[in-house]
Simulated assay, not measured.
Amino acid sequence: MTVNSHLKEFHGLPAFTFPDADDKSPRATSLPEPESVAWRVGVDAYDSEEEWEDAFARFLAAVDTERVRALIVGAWSEAYDSAPGAVIEALVAARERLPALRGLFFGDIVMEECEISWIVQGDVSPLLNAFPALEEFGVRGGNQLVFPAVRHERLRSLTVETGGMPVEAVRGVAGSDLPALEKLDLWLGTSEYGGDAGVADLEPFFAGTRLPGLIRLGLRNSEIQDDICAALASAPVVARLEVLDVSMGVLTDDGVTALLSGQPLTHLKKLDLHHNYLSTALRTRLLETLEPAGVLVDADQDDAESDEEEDGTVWRFVAVGE
């Protein structure tokens, strides 16, 4: 599985792709109200006739950007080979023209444009520093991703989607002061694609001290999902969560047994562990334990794939890798 469709909505708004320069259709001349959609600005990832910064300049000229609430950065030219420094610089330079911006997603790039593990990223912290009123920020792609520790007073939702999240980026998020953050969603990925964080690097998330408002925690798409669940079994942050998401990873009976043997989970509104490698018996036990307490449990396996070699070695895979 990989990312094969663009965002259909973001920050509670339907996504609308800003038209290409040569688009002469009615859609290009009758744009929606600036505040009514999440605007996606992107160019062709391969052999683009327009650079992303030029498309963004057209957007700034065509739309009353003082009313824009949400912005989605789509593909930039040769995203598989080029760091988006100029894209980030263009956004930072336009910060005064986007006073109402509250949601920003950086890198809405699908597999046909560039596989998630190929997307070359960079230091995304200038975007958070440039937009102190942001409430929601997301970024896709872990290749060369840099996320130093930051402080942001208003950010309520942070999503990092990768096939492999570098340990320094994980530590940067873990070291950030985000007092308003309610939702954190990290796709940790696999070591094959640069996801080299261990459970010890996630300890600040388990403690939750830098994230006093956190109620929705996702630590997922990981090859160490069992170890994460074992740590969550006694993690202080769990007691105040409404949603716990450990989906999309290599989760087996060992991880769920640890969760069920640890602190109570019956206070949760939802436990998401879709794409898993659970036995029928363990899945039944999980549902019988939590569903009577009103917990919505997503334990679907979602075509989780595994391979067995002739020597009996079993290989299991995260949902989104390459």
Score class of each variant (00 low, 15 high):
87 V>C: 08
88 I>L: 06
88 I>W: 10
88 I>C: 07
88 I>H: 05
89 E>Q: 14
89 E>C: 08
90 A>T: 15
91 L>D: 07
91 L>I: 12
91 L>Y: 08
91 L>W: 03
91 L>S: 09
92 V>K: 07
93 A>S: 14
93 A>V: 03
93 A>K: 05
93 A>I: 03
93 A>W: 02
94 A>R: 06
94 A>L: 12
94 A>Y: 11
95 R>S: 13
95 R>V: 03
97 R>A: 15
98 L>W: 11
99 P>M: 10
99 P>Q: 02
99 P>F: 10
99 P>A: 03
100 A>K: 06
100 A>R: 13
101 L>P: 11
101 L>W: 14
101 L>Y: 12
101 L>M: 15
102 R>M: 06
102 R>C: 11
102 R>E: 15
103 G>V: 00
103 G>T: 06
104 L>P: 08
104 L>R: 02
104 L>E: 05
104 L>G: 04
105 F>L: 00
105 F>I: 02
106 F>L: 09
106 F>P: 08
106 F>Q: 00
106 F>D: 05
106 F>A: 06
107 G>I: 09
107 G>D: 05
108 D>C: 10
108 D>F: 13
109 I>N: 01
110 V>P: 00
110 V>Y: 01
111 M>W: 15
111 M>K: 08
113 E>I: 06
113 E>K: 06
113 E>T: 05
113 E>R: 06
113 E>N: 04
114 C>M: 06
115 E>Q: 07
115 E>W: 09
115 E>H: 11
115 E>A: 04
115 E>P: 07
116 I>L: 07
116 I>C: 13
117 S>T: 05
117 S>C: 08
117 S>D: 14
117 S>G: 02
117 S>F: 03
117 S>Y: 09
117 S>P: 02
118 W>M: 14
118 W>R: 11
118 W>L: 09
119 I>V: 15
119 I>F: 05
119 I>N: 06
120 V>N: 08
120 V>K: 08
120 V>L: 05
121 Q>I: 01
122 G>I: 00
122 G>C: 15
122 G>H: 11
122 G>N: 14
124 V>R: 00
124 V>A: 10
124 V>C: 04
124 V>T: 13
125 S>N: 04
125 S>R: 06
126 P>H: 05
127 L>W: 10
127 L>D: 06
127 L>I: 10
127 L>T: 01
128 L>F: 14
128 L>W: 11
128 L>K: 13
128 L>A: 01
129 N>W: 03
129 N>P: 01
129 N>G: 00
130 A>S: 12
130 A>F: 10
131 F>N: 07
131 F>D: 15
131 F>W: 04
131 F>V: 07
132 P>L: 07
132 P>S: 09
133 A>Y: 02
134 L>V: 00
135 E>Y: 00
135 E>A: 12
136 E>R: 12
136 E>C: 01
136 E>V: 04
137 F>E: 10
137 F>I: 06
137 F>W: 07
137 F>P: 09
138 G>D: 04
138 G>K: 09
138 G>M: 04
139 V>R: 00
